[in-house]
Write a protein that binds this DNA or RNA. Structure first.
Lengths: 215, 215, 215, 215
DNA sequence: CTTTAACCGAGACGGTACGTCGTGTCTTAAC
DNA sequence: GTTAAGACACGACGTACCGTCTCGGTTAAAG
């Protein structure tokens, strides 16, 4: 099975540009190059395990064993479990509708939230909530989660809100940053409130409510 | 030092009625009674450790050792760390303003959110976010967090919103459940976004924004 | 099932005079009398458990639970597991041929060894070896084992040997104490050498060999 | 301090050929090699503790702590305490007179028993009895004790007796196996009868008596 | 075409914590 | 004043992972 195939089974989809997993060592002169095969095995195995187990229940040790890879190899490229999982799930997000652009702010808002909601559906949403939770308690991983996952969504949403405010579609009293927090906060609050995947209705209603709030 | 004094150092304050930490065994006839001294030592030690360490970094083992108590004694009364921490922090919440009631919905909303914000200030808010995160990944502890901590706040807020809707102060299109999620979701999203305690301004602004949203 | 019936299933048999299990509290004036029912329940349960588990695997805790008795009650009357087991197995030994006496030394020797061998057959022998082993490492229980169980056998055998030496049936160069050690030592060495019960042939052969040694 | 020096303080001496403590993994290709330093620390610490505490009172946990070694490291190489102690005490037995050979059977018998008696003197004898006792109740450790410790002695003694029987020095009616049991059984019966170390006279007398028995 | 150096798998290492079990002591109310 | 019940402090169990470390063995560019 290809990595592509394995990862497609996770319903996380988002258009990011398949950037290198870790910062590229700039101009390494000689020595054995990193094994792409091992990297893929690690990421694929992680994704496969995420389908069955919670982030909490996955250990670096078990990933290494299942992937047929030395523990050192994982630790060489990822400092901790959160980094690994974030990279693993960022793979499946590649086959996705591009971030919205163009059109009137209300449509853009609706489309962006639908886009985010799609990411949160099914097991994917639970995984994200689990990494989010797992990233807490350590300042670095906490920051990493936002940097690798949320920043893009926050920026898009914020820019849509600003657009709407200047175009007159949204009220000017709208506190942009806070509204972003409220909307994505509601998503996570839902995801972390009960063991079931995100309710379909919830996604629809929050979009309606968001539109009402903004105007 | 009394338990009261020790616990007061955590800035969590809320008026709940000093209810028993675990469900009271109804009319246990004989056998050695539970040692209130040990219970208090456990809860006090937990609170003391929460001031210095994250929930993640606290272990049942270390609490037992510091409290001068057998590990078994802790496991006898609390099935896991989340339960213990939730009981520990529910103690300090006793010395608090009563839940709001009476007055017009807008004032009530403002007061309730101020009340919740006070709970989230300082180390207290971080602790709550940490337990919240720690409770994820296990369905039972996840439910426990809401049951022991959030349910009360959710119910109060929901009833205020309903009140406002029927009194005409708030718009009738308001989705009560969703609004509750957005407001408390925003709080947790903030608390879990960066390692610093909750920004003072955030509390003020979310109250303003909440009022705008509702009308 | 009566205690008698339960105990009869252990193949330990020896004629001792059903003496009280512990020193009788002489003329206790008032207070609740000791519960003979509990005593019997404890001893019966211990015997029952000895049929299924090794002495090592039996705990005071489990005896108390199975016997429906407080742990304290056991500790009040027996200081440790070895004492308890020794008392428990001394019960079933009551229905036994009296210690040998009268007749010529060679016959006496044979009969006494047959009598001891009967005690060591089947599960009974393993239990004895297990208590023996369990009694090691603590000076008091070590002494207790000999006092409660071996002393009688040693004395009988020694007196037979002495009798034989003075009657001329046995050689006078025989070191009585050492011969006792060698004979009973051989029994225990056998019992503790393999997990199976004592071999039937072994009993017969050691008697023959003992007779050869003595003369 | 060398392992040799540390172990010499235990009065167990016997000439076995410093064989590897655990079965050598034949040609383990890769992976970090076993730390000889840790192994020695574990064995030395065990020996040191055996001088002060009974086998019963020594815990894997305490050995690990004193040896500055992870508990896992001990469990990786020894399945239980008995295995560990047997390996630990088999070290000090290296600096010893070779097993007897050549000469007439009576001399051989005498020398072999003196050799065994030397092993049983002082704390060493008590330790052996303690491991013996500790090994009971579990079929595997029971077998292990004999395999690692007694088999060699039994075989030597048996061969001497057979030699004597065919040379005419010992009576042909002698039951070899049984005699071995009686002699070593007597040693253990003595060692396990009282908390003191083996009586010096006992060793001398048993040798005399053994010679009388055989002829 | 050999050196060099980073990579890789395997897996041992010192640790920390887990949740459980049993010890022997204690503290009740009931009898 | 004993009893059943059962809580208590303690200590050890054997297991799981952590993140680090050491091996023997690739692998490929640089000399």
């Amino acid at each position: 099975m290809t990595a592509q195939a394995a990862q497609a089974s996770i319903e996380i989809n988002q258009n990011n540009t398949a950037e290198p997993v870790v910062e590229e060592a700039i101009a390494r002169s000689n020595g054995r190059p990193r094994s792409e095969k091992s990297m893929q095995a690690i990421l694929d195995t992680t994704n496969k395990m995420l389908l069955m187990s919670s982030v909490r229940d996955i250990s670096i040790e078990s990933v290494a064993k299942k992937a047929g890879v030395g523990k050192t190899t994982i630790y060489r490229w990822w400092p901790n479990k959160v980094s690994l999982v974030l990279d693993a799930i960022s793979g499946p997000m590649n086959s996705l509708p591009a971030p919205v652009s163009g059109g009137n702010p209300k449509d853009l808002l609706e489309k962006q939230l639908e886009r985010f909601a799609r990411v949160c559906r099914g097991r994917g949403g639970k995984i994200i909530a689990e990494v989010y939770a797992e990233s807490q308690g350590n300042a670095e991983t906490q920051a990493l989660f936002f940097e690798k996952f949320m920043v893009q969504h926050e920026e898009i949403l914020a820019s849509i809100l600003e657009q709407g405010k200047s175009s007159g579609d949204f009220r000017t009293t709208l506190n942009t940053a806070l509204t972003v927090d409220m909307i994505y906060g509601a998503f996570f609050y839902q995801l972390m409130s009960n063991p079931n995947p995100l309710d379909q209705n919830f996604a629809n209603e929050i979009i309606l409510e968001a539109l009402r709030i903004c105007k």
